[in-house]
């Protein structure tokens, strides 16, 4: 198949960016989106041009490295998949595809489609951990955790920190990301001891990084490649109110 890419090109963080068009010819419908970009980059290198920079690592939807806004949708038109799991068969012959980096002031563009997501790391460093001395391996089932809670915590832990929630939100809010970590630890006995300071510190850091506030549009849930539900944001709000008022 033959398509046209309209890609955001920006040499570095300080330079002005602009859109540039590239033809992508002879693309197999079975190629992943990143493989298609690899093919375009090979063509650009052969022509002596700078290849399109984009983040990627595992290419199986686990690491959260890849991510770009494809025709206005973070990770593209398919629900519940990261960019690396998106296949060219979801596009039509002759399509023009617009590629943009995550747009948020807390995620400055480093180059082309690569953004700096260390603001997420700093939010996690502010409280997204359990600081107890773990000691030796405990006996199985010595800490009783109901199956329902364990599963909900595990679902929250599925967040890969890709930043699609921020990219999708009209306010560039990081609430879904923060809520997934707060929720995961608040649901488990291991996270209970620090739940109050955790939520306060993580939200303070989130605000400090310049992410916007949540207005419950639910765009984050719709675009999350791991389908993290906004019920975690409800729990985050509960945790925050409880921490502030008690």
């Amino acid at each position: 198949m033959n398509i046209t890419l309209n890609v955001w090109r920006q040499p570095d963080q300080k330079s002005q960016g602009q859109f540039q068009s590239y033809p992508a010819t002879g693309i197999s419908p079975d190629m992943s989106f990143l493989e298609m970009l690899d093919a375009v980059n090979t063509m650009l290198v052969k022509k002596g041009e700078e290849p399109i920079a984009f983040d990627h690592d595992c290419r199986e939807g686990i690491c959260g490295s890849c991510g770009m806004v494809i025709n206005g949708r973070p990770h593209g038109p398919e629900r519940g998949v990261a960019t690396c799991q998106l296949y060219m068969r979801h596009f039509k012959e002759g399509d023009t595809i617009t590629l943009e980096p995550w747009r948020a002031n807390a995620f400055p563009v480093l180059k082309d489609l690569v953004v700096d997501r260390t603001s997420f790391d700093r939010i996690i460093q502010a409280g997204g951990y359990v600081s107890v001395d773990t000691g030796g391996v405990p006996d199985a089932n010595c800490i009783p955790i109901p199956k329902v809670k364990a599963e909900e915590a595990m679902d929250a832990a599925a967040c890969i920190g890709c930043g699609a929630c921020v990219a999708a939100c009209k306010n560039s809010s990081a609430m879904l990301f923060v809520s997934a970590k707060v929720s995961q630890l608040a649901l488990l006995p291991q996270g209970d001891a620090e739940r109050k300071q955790r939520v306060e510190r993580m939200i303070a850091q989130m605000d400090k990084e310049g992410f916007g506030g949540c207005t419950n549009t639910l765009a984050c849930e719709a675009e999350c490649p791991k389908k993290i539900p906004v019920t975690h944001i409800a729990r985050l709000n509960r945790e925050f109110l409880r921490a502030k008022l008690t």
Binding site: W8, T98, K170, N171, G210, F211
Partner: peptide
């Protein structure tokens, strides 16, 4: 405040 969080809008 929310407007301040994204200076460059999306094209698409």
């Amino acid at each position: 405040l929310n407007k301040q969080a994204r200076s460059v809008p999306y094209k698409a």
